[in-house]
Design a binder for these strands. Sequence first.
DNA 1: CACATTCGTGAACAGCGTTCAAGAGGGTTT
DNA 2: AAACCCTCTTGAACGCTGTTCACGAATGTG
Lengths: 200, 200
Amino acid sequence: MSVSDRRARLRDDLVAAAEARIVEGGLAALKARDLAREVGCALGAIYNVFPDLDALILAANGRTLSEFEAHLDATLPSAGEGDPVDELVGLACAYLDFALAHRRRWQALFQHRLPEGSAIPDWYMAQQAELFARVEKPVARLRPDLDGEACALLGRSVFSATHGVVALGLDEKLASLPPNTLRAQLEILVRAIGRGLARA
Amino acid sequence: MSVSDRRARLRDDLVAAAEARIVEGGLAALKARDLAREVGCALGAIYNVFPDLDALILAANGRTLSEFEAHLDATLPSAGEGDPVDELVGLACAYLDFALAHRRRWQALFQHRLPEGSAIPDWYMAQQAELFARVEKPVARLRPDLDGEACALLGRSVFSATHGVVALGLDEKLASLPPNTLRAQLEILVRAIGRGLARA
DNA sequence: CACATTCGTGAACAGCGTTCAAGAGGGTTT
DNA sequence: AAACCCTCTTGAACGCTGTTCACGAATGTG
């Protein structure tokens, strides 16, 4: 086996182990020594593949983002056909479903902060942008009068609002809501946003 | 000076020092040894006043919440008089203004997580509930047909949506928006929510 | 087969939150 | 005033963290 093959293998194993630790105990449970033991490598070997643990977490979060996009493709195959408001509600519910199904990994997405000053990789930014684009499309159909940039901003805001409702709804620090209640609230709110945005 | 006076003094000094550290470098910059040096006490003395640093952070965050309520009282003195939608927009803008003016302390409010399993103090939950109540009132005026619980839930959801727009709008991980752009988006979205909720 | 270079290794380092045995101090009783 | 007790204060020490680095092994090359 070549060197770069082993490297790639170790990389995948580490990301998988990181995901497992996140699923089991959240971001706080991700420890370098645990990972090394779990994948059967030396402690220092981690730092041959990733510059630091933040980069490893970013890789794991990238996988979560990809999985969420796959989830959207699977549950919302007919995008761009029906009522734009219904589509926004569908996107929001899909977001909630994914958060509920992969709670810890979803939490890790925004719980993780990079140390002051270090930049987010371009590939990660691009993955986030793809998500915003999904929301942007129905917004553009809802408001054909707005230009591209306005739609992009509005799409981001609608995503942000959705995220806020889900994030605070599941937050244990705020006494998290039962899934059914939360889903009902989300639907009410996103539908209100859609209706409120429809006619300027 | 009595013992409990010194204790109270140390407590206040520690919370003030914690706030200063948060303002200067965020939650991550809050270190026990720095605090001890700053207030001129021994390292262990911190743990005579607070069970751990989480409790100290909670105390600092409690002060931030109180300050935000004072900010609301100061900038929105005439609550319950005008258009409920305008009031929601005013609350949202006040939230944004506070977040901009006290960015690091505001971030600390929700960036901080308690270690798995430990409970949030009642006084902290109560302070959060007061905030939700502020949003609940205009929601109730907007929708007199809803009962108290429905209004409480909806108020929480409107707050969550507002928070989401502000939080992701200022998030460096997402390329944070300029304040003016963010304020415009927030106004558009909250107004849409208000209009969308108005007529069921 | 010999060499050069790269990689894997885990002990070591610096820093963290938290603890605790020991000593100092204030409050109460004699 | 003196002796006592108990609480508070102290900072060294503990266990854990992410990260580094000199060293030995292993790989690719001439």
